[in-house]
Design a protein around this nucleic acid. Sequence first.
DNA 1: AAAATAGTGTCTCTTAGACATTATATA
DNA 2: TATATAATGTCTAAGAGACACTATTTT
Lengths: 237, 237
Amino acid sequence: MPSLEQQYLKNYNIKDYELPLTTVDMCIFSIINQQLHVLLLKRNSFPEKNKRALPGGFIDLKKDSNIEATAYRQLLLKTGIQCPYLEQVESVGSQSRDPRGWSLTILYFALIDIQTIDQKLSPQSDWYAIKEAQKMPLAFDHAVLLTKAFERLKSKTCYTALPIALLPQKFTLTELQTIFEIILEKKLPVKSFRLRVQTAKVVKATGQTKISGKRSAQLYESTGLTADFYFPRPLQR
Amino acid sequence: MPSLEQQYLKNYNIKDYELPLTTVDMCIFSIINQQLHVLLLKRNSFPEKNKRALPGGFIDLKKDSNIEATAYRQLLLKTGIQCPYLEQVESVGSQSRDPRGWSLTILYFALIDIQTIDQKLSPQSDWYAIKEAQKMPLAFDHAVLLTKAFERLKSKTCYTALPIALLPQKFTLTELQTIFEIILEKKLPVKSFRLRVQTAKVVKATGQTKISGKRSAQLYESTGLTADFYFPRPLQR
DNA sequence: AAAATAGTGTCTCTTAGACATTATATA
DNA sequence: TATATAATGTCTAAGAGACACTATTTT
């Protein structure tokens, strides 16, 4: 004989309740040509057909065992890459953000190094410089989402070494500093930047050097402490 | 003649898609008897009947125009209060967290001063000290949610003046420091704490004093900068 | 006066930021 | 050798943390 709880669950029907349309949207950031870029897709179906949108889509209750799985699936689908830095930003939901009805999106951002993926993007997707993307009329409330994700990235750049995820495995400290400067949209003092990352042990020298411009530079790599390391003092905004 | 997009929306039926069960759950924090407490409800229906759970519930697509509205509605329903500090923590969703099916919750935390509400709680709800609550077998994954919310509170206590929201409008600096110490579970140096909050201008003296113990103390109040102010240097964890 | 709580003085240490200087590679 | 880029030296300022000290109230 089934328990009361088993009976309850047997009779429970999800379709009896009205639920919000739930999606996962992603800001995939990468540095291209010394500028922060974001991946946008041109929508080829209604609603908001032909407008640019953040990559994303519905949670697939069959395929995705949790929301992060949805995010990784979308990322793989759109960029062909498997394991970048992924972070949940926040969830935005309202009656009005999608004409199809009450809808909710869980916003993530990803940091990738575009050089390390040779995968060709779908013809619908393209990289846009943040500043350009923020001027374009994006689908739904994606302009707001983009700003939220960008703000989070800027904010975390002030107190973590997160931007390392935007570089190839080996990089020079000048390259790293440049990435920080691109994100924060301001110059940083060389000496204290180097002291900061080196005393924090978020990078270690590889012994190798890189000859790109004039004098060759030391190549560094992440120590792997990046994800959870917080600098003792944040950079000024 | 309707446009193609209008036709698409007319034929669009939400019920054609499988959607996650979406709820908003809340950690309502308050200081009682010099300890951080959280409001828990005893569930009186399946599933997880009779277990303690965080207050929360389904988004009401008719009543709630956005997710924050759901959070405020739940808060009013459970505590009778209207305008405390409310912050979204994160969203957690998976196949397995609820026996009814794929479910998603958007987790918020609220900070209230229990003294300022004379509202009686429903007989199902009760305050538990964090340490006690973390030892109890909570419904669903609410133990994990509780820990996430507590972690966020601790973390923000290190670089903002957020705990002010746990106090009545007027308070002494010693009271404020005590709240910080309760949350961070460690003693703080008196001199630098006072310097910190005063130079940051997150509190201002009211001119009034409070006679509670021996020597009377100055009463301060929030300057309202609390929400977005970040101290230039975080407290150590 | 004693005790308890409120509040200040002063020192050290760390680290961001400013700015000058040196080092090393290429052309 | 000139030049550009890489990297270091040295100083200042701000603020956290430690610890000793003073102030004010009640009993």
